[in-house]
Protein backbone atom coordinates (compact mmCIF):
# COMPACT_ATOMS: atom_id res chain seq x y z
CA UNK A 1 0.00 0.00 0.00
CA UNK A 2 1.60 3.24 -1.06
CA UNK A 3 -0.82 5.38 0.86
CA UNK A 4 1.06 7.04 3.70
CA UNK A 5 -0.38 9.01 6.53
CA UNK A 6 0.67 12.26 4.87
CA UNK A 7 -1.16 12.03 1.58
CA UNK A 8 -4.32 10.47 3.04
CA UNK A 9 -5.09 13.67 4.91
CA UNK A 10 -4.82 15.82 1.80
CA UNK A 11 -7.48 13.84 -0.06
CA UNK A 12 -11.09 14.87 0.02
CA UNK A 13 -13.07 12.62 2.30
CA UNK A 14 -15.80 10.41 0.85
CA UNK A 15 -17.74 10.46 4.07
CA UNK A 16 -17.57 12.91 6.94
CA UNK A 17 -19.04 12.28 10.33
CA UNK A 18 -19.38 15.64 12.01
CA UNK A 19 -19.79 15.59 15.78
CA UNK A 20 -22.54 13.01 15.54
CA UNK A 21 -24.52 12.15 18.67
CA UNK A 22 -27.57 9.98 19.09
CA UNK A 23 -29.89 9.68 22.07
CA UNK A 24 -33.01 7.62 22.40
CA UNK A 25 -35.87 8.26 24.76
CA UNK A 26 -35.52 5.77 27.56
CA UNK A 27 -38.22 3.14 27.80
CA UNK A 28 -39.97 4.62 30.81
CA UNK A 29 -39.89 8.06 29.17
CA UNK A 30 -38.07 9.52 32.16
CA UNK A 31 -35.00 10.64 30.29
CA UNK A 32 -32.56 10.22 27.45
CA UNK A 33 -30.43 7.25 26.73
CA UNK A 34 -27.25 8.51 25.08
CA UNK A 35 -25.76 5.99 22.69
CA UNK A 36 -23.33 8.02 20.62
CA UNK A 37 -21.41 11.11 21.60
CA UNK A 38 -19.27 13.49 19.58
CA UNK A 39 -18.33 11.09 16.79
CA UNK A 40 -16.05 13.05 14.51
CA UNK A 41 -14.08 11.41 11.72
CA UNK A 42 -13.60 11.20 7.96
CA UNK A 43 -13.41 8.27 5.62
CA UNK A 44 -11.09 8.66 2.62
CA UNK A 45 -11.24 7.36 -0.91
CA UNK A 46 -10.53 3.62 -1.12
CA UNK A 47 -9.68 3.43 2.53
CA UNK A 48 -10.49 0.36 4.61
CA UNK A 49 -11.58 1.87 7.91
CA UNK A 50 -12.42 -0.39 10.83
CA UNK A 51 -14.56 0.80 13.71
CA UNK A 52 -13.54 -1.47 16.53
CA UNK A 53 -15.04 -1.74 19.98
CA UNK A 54 -16.51 -4.07 22.53
CA UNK A 55 -20.12 -4.57 23.44
CA UNK A 56 -23.28 -4.13 21.45
CA UNK A 57 -24.14 -0.56 22.08
CA UNK A 58 -23.47 2.20 19.59
CA UNK A 59 -21.64 0.66 16.64
CA UNK A 60 -24.67 -0.48 14.70
CA UNK A 61 -26.48 2.77 15.47
CA UNK A 62 -23.51 4.67 14.08
CA UNK A 63 -23.45 2.61 10.92
CA UNK A 64 -27.19 3.08 10.45
CA UNK A 65 -26.67 6.82 10.72
CA UNK A 66 -23.86 6.72 8.15
CA UNK A 67 -26.21 4.77 5.91
CA UNK A 68 -29.04 7.24 6.33
CA UNK A 69 -31.29 4.62 7.91
CA UNK A 70 -31.27 6.54 11.18
CA UNK A 71 -30.86 10.24 11.94
CA UNK A 72 -28.44 11.67 14.48
CA UNK A 73 -29.84 13.83 17.26
CA UNK A 74 -26.70 15.94 17.07
CA UNK A 75 -24.25 16.73 14.31
CA UNK A 76 -24.48 15.55 10.71
CA UNK A 77 -23.08 13.14 8.17
CA UNK A 78 -21.83 14.34 4.79
CA UNK A 79 -21.35 12.07 1.82
CA UNK A 80 -19.15 13.81 -0.77
CA UNK A 81 -20.16 17.09 0.83
CA UNK A 82 -23.90 16.37 0.68
CA UNK A 83 -25.83 15.93 3.90
CA UNK A 84 -27.08 12.37 4.35
CA UNK A 85 -30.81 12.32 5.06
CA UNK A 86 -31.98 8.99 3.69
CA UNK A 87 -30.67 5.67 2.42
CA UNK A 88 -29.15 5.74 -1.04
CA UNK A 89 -27.68 3.12 -3.33
CA UNK A 90 -24.39 5.04 -3.31
CA UNK A 91 -23.86 3.49 0.10
CA UNK A 92 -23.88 -0.30 0.13
CA UNK A 93 -24.64 -2.20 3.31
CA UNK A 94 -23.50 -5.67 4.37
CA UNK A 95 -25.26 -7.07 7.41
CA UNK A 96 -24.26 -9.48 10.12
CA UNK A 97 -27.41 -11.51 9.57
CA UNK A 98 -26.76 -11.18 5.81
CA UNK A 99 -30.41 -10.10 5.41
CA UNK A 100 -30.65 -11.80 2.07
CA UNK A 101 -34.17 -11.94 0.70
CA UNK A 102 -35.00 -15.57 1.44
CA UNK A 103 -37.59 -15.93 -1.33
CA UNK A 104 -35.15 -14.88 -4.01
CA UNK A 105 -32.42 -16.97 -5.58
CA UNK A 106 -28.78 -15.96 -5.27
CA UNK A 107 -28.83 -14.19 -8.63
CA UNK A 108 -32.09 -12.39 -7.83
CA UNK A 109 -30.60 -11.20 -4.57
CA UNK A 110 -27.45 -9.92 -6.23
CA UNK A 111 -29.44 -8.34 -9.07
CA UNK A 112 -31.96 -6.72 -6.74
CA UNK A 113 -30.21 -3.34 -6.49
CA UNK A 114 -29.56 -2.82 -10.21
CA UNK A 115 -33.07 -4.05 -10.95
CA UNK A 116 -35.00 -1.77 -8.62
CA UNK A 117 -32.96 1.10 -10.02
CA UNK A 118 -34.24 0.13 -13.48
CA UNK A 119 -30.89 -0.55 -15.11
CA UNK A 120 -31.25 -2.31 -18.46
CA UNK A 121 -31.73 -6.07 -18.10
CA UNK A 122 -28.46 -6.76 -19.91
CA UNK A 123 -26.51 -4.60 -17.50
CA UNK A 124 -28.22 -6.28 -14.54
CA UNK A 125 -27.18 -9.69 -15.85
CA UNK A 126 -23.63 -8.56 -16.47
CA UNK A 127 -23.27 -7.23 -12.98
CA UNK A 128 -24.74 -10.34 -11.41
CA UNK A 129 -22.29 -12.45 -13.35
CA UNK A 130 -19.33 -10.23 -12.60
CA UNK A 131 -19.86 -9.96 -8.87
CA UNK A 132 -20.84 -13.57 -8.31
CA UNK A 133 -17.61 -14.40 -10.05
CA UNK A 134 -15.74 -11.92 -7.85
CA UNK A 135 -16.96 -13.56 -4.65
CA UNK A 136 -16.46 -17.05 -6.08
CA UNK A 137 -20.08 -18.15 -6.26
CA UNK A 138 -20.49 -18.83 -9.96
CA UNK A 139 -22.60 -21.96 -10.27
CA UNK A 140 -24.85 -21.09 -7.33
CA UNK A 141 -27.05 -18.61 -9.25
CA UNK A 142 -30.24 -20.62 -8.79
CA UNK A 143 -29.74 -21.59 -5.16
CA UNK A 144 -31.85 -20.13 -2.38
CA UNK A 145 -30.16 -18.58 0.65
CA UNK A 146 -31.31 -21.37 2.97
CA UNK A 147 -29.43 -23.87 0.81
CA UNK A 148 -26.11 -22.13 1.43
CA UNK A 149 -23.62 -22.27 4.28
CA UNK A 150 -23.07 -19.24 6.51
CA UNK A 151 -19.90 -18.25 4.70
CA UNK A 152 -21.55 -18.53 1.28
CA UNK A 153 -24.52 -16.47 2.39
CA UNK A 154 -22.17 -13.76 3.51
CA UNK A 155 -20.47 -13.84 0.09
CA UNK A 156 -23.85 -13.29 -1.52
CA UNK A 157 -24.37 -10.34 0.83
CA UNK A 158 -21.08 -8.85 -0.28
CA UNK A 159 -21.84 -9.45 -3.96
CA UNK A 160 -25.25 -7.85 -3.55
CA UNK A 161 -23.69 -4.72 -2.07
CA UNK A 162 -20.99 -4.63 -4.76
CA UNK A 163 -23.52 -5.08 -7.58
CA UNK A 164 -24.85 -1.59 -6.97
CA UNK A 165 -21.29 -0.33 -7.46
CA UNK A 166 -21.60 1.89 -4.42
CA UNK A 167 -19.34 4.76 -3.56
CA UNK A 168 -18.83 3.41 -0.07
CA UNK A 169 -19.49 0.06 1.62
CA UNK A 170 -20.74 -0.14 5.17
CA UNK A 171 -20.21 -3.51 6.80
CA UNK A 172 -21.79 -4.33 10.13
CA UNK A 173 -19.91 -7.24 11.72
CA UNK A 174 -20.50 -9.33 8.62
CA UNK A 175 -18.58 -12.31 9.96
CA UNK A 176 -19.84 -12.11 13.52
CA UNK A 177 -21.95 -15.26 13.27
CA UNK A 178 -19.30 -17.46 11.65
CA UNK A 179 -17.01 -19.88 13.43
CA UNK A 180 -13.38 -18.92 13.94
CA UNK A 181 -12.05 -20.84 10.94
CA UNK A 182 -14.72 -19.81 8.44
CA UNK A 183 -14.07 -16.33 9.69
CA UNK A 184 -10.38 -16.52 8.78
CA UNK A 185 -11.37 -17.72 5.34
CA UNK A 186 -13.88 -14.90 4.84
CA UNK A 187 -11.39 -12.31 6.05
CA UNK A 188 -8.88 -13.53 3.49
CA UNK A 189 -11.62 -13.56 0.86
CA UNK A 190 -12.75 -10.05 1.64
CA UNK A 191 -9.17 -8.85 1.48
CA UNK A 192 -8.75 -10.52 -1.92
CA UNK A 193 -12.01 -9.06 -3.20
CA UNK A 194 -11.14 -5.64 -1.92
CA UNK A 195 -7.67 -5.69 -3.47
CA UNK A 196 -9.27 -6.60 -6.78
CA UNK A 197 -12.15 -4.11 -6.63
CA UNK A 198 -11.17 -1.28 -4.35
CA UNK A 199 -13.98 0.45 -2.53
CA UNK A 200 -14.14 2.76 0.39
CA UNK A 201 -15.12 0.53 3.29
CA UNK A 202 -16.33 1.22 6.80
CA UNK A 203 -16.21 -2.07 8.66
CA UNK A 204 -17.56 -2.57 12.16
CA UNK A 205 -16.27 -5.42 14.31
CA UNK A 206 -15.61 -6.50 17.87
CA UNK A 207 -12.94 -8.96 16.77
CA UNK A 208 -9.41 -7.59 17.10
CA UNK A 209 -7.79 -10.14 14.78
CA UNK A 210 -10.28 -9.28 12.07
CA UNK A 211 -9.71 -5.55 12.58
CA UNK A 212 -5.94 -5.89 12.30
CA UNK A 213 -6.10 -8.26 9.37
CA UNK A 214 -8.21 -5.93 7.24
CA UNK A 215 -7.72 -2.33 8.29
CA UNK A 216 -5.80 0.58 6.86
CA UNK A 217 -6.93 2.48 9.90
CA UNK A 218 -8.64 1.41 13.12
CA UNK A 219 -10.80 3.69 15.21
CA UNK A 220 -11.13 2.32 18.73
CA UNK A 221 -14.53 3.05 20.25
CA UNK A 222 -15.51 3.07 23.88
CA UNK A 223 -18.79 1.96 25.28
CA UNK A 224 -21.95 3.71 26.38
CA UNK A 225 -22.10 6.36 25.14
CA UNK A 226 -19.87 5.32 22.28
CA UNK A 227 -17.16 7.78 21.41
CA UNK A 228 -13.72 7.69 19.85
CA UNK A 229 -10.93 6.68 22.18
CA UNK A 230 -7.99 6.16 19.90
CA UNK A 231 -7.00 5.95 16.26
CA UNK A 232 -4.37 3.64 14.77
CA UNK A 233 -2.83 3.69 11.30
CA UNK A 234 -2.04 0.11 10.32
CA UNK A 235 0.77 -0.05 7.81
CA UNK A 236 1.57 -3.75 7.77
CA UNK A 237 1.71 -5.11 4.21
CA UNK A 238 -0.95 -7.52 2.92
CA UNK A 239 -1.52 -10.42 3.17
CA UNK A 240 -1.08 -10.19 6.89
CA UNK A 241 -0.22 -13.00 9.27
CA UNK A 242 -2.26 -13.49 12.44
CA UNK A 243 0.80 -14.62 14.40
CA UNK A 244 3.32 -12.16 13.05
CA UNK A 245 5.09 -10.45 16.02
CA UNK A 246 4.04 -6.99 14.86
CA UNK A 247 0.47 -8.20 14.46
CA UNK A 248 0.50 -9.65 17.97
CA UNK A 249 2.09 -6.51 19.36
CA UNK A 250 -0.59 -4.26 17.89
CA UNK A 251 -3.22 -6.68 19.03
CA UNK A 252 -1.97 -6.45 22.61
CA UNK A 253 -1.67 -2.68 22.39
CA UNK A 254 -5.21 -2.16 21.17
CA UNK A 255 -6.77 -4.79 23.41
CA UNK A 256 -5.17 -3.19 26.46
CA UNK A 257 -6.77 0.07 25.45
CA UNK A 258 -10.25 -1.41 25.24
CA UNK A 259 -12.85 -1.08 27.92
CA UNK A 260 -13.57 -4.29 29.69
CA UNK A 261 -17.34 -4.56 29.93
CA UNK A 262 -18.29 -7.07 32.55
Amino acid sequence: MERSEGNVKTKTPVLECRNVGRSFDSYDGSGKNEVLRGMDFEVYENEFLVLFGAGQCGKTTLLNILAGLDMPTEGEVLARGQKVTKPAPERGFVYQKTSLFPWMTVEENVGFGPKVRHLPEKEVQERVKKYLDLVGLTGFEKSYPNQLSGGMRQRVGIARAYANEPDIMLMDEPFGHLDAQTRYMMEEELQRIWQKEKRTVVFVTNNIEEALFLADRIILLTNCPTHIKEEYEINMPHPRDYVDPEFLRLRQLITDNMDLTL
Partner: peptide, 10 residues
Protein backbone atom coordinates in the same frame (compact mmCIF):
# COMPACT_ATOMS: atom_id res chain seq x y z
CA UNK B 1 -33.47 -5.18 8.33
CA UNK B 2 -34.78 -6.62 5.04
CA UNK B 3 -36.70 -3.42 4.42
CA UNK B 4 -33.57 -1.44 5.29
CA UNK B 5 -31.49 -3.60 2.96
CA UNK B 6 -33.93 -2.99 0.09
CA UNK B 7 -33.91 0.75 0.71
CA UNK B 8 -30.13 0.80 0.83
CA UNK B 9 -30.10 -0.90 -2.55
CA UNK B 10 -32.27 1.86 -3.97
Amino acid sequence: ELIGAARMLG
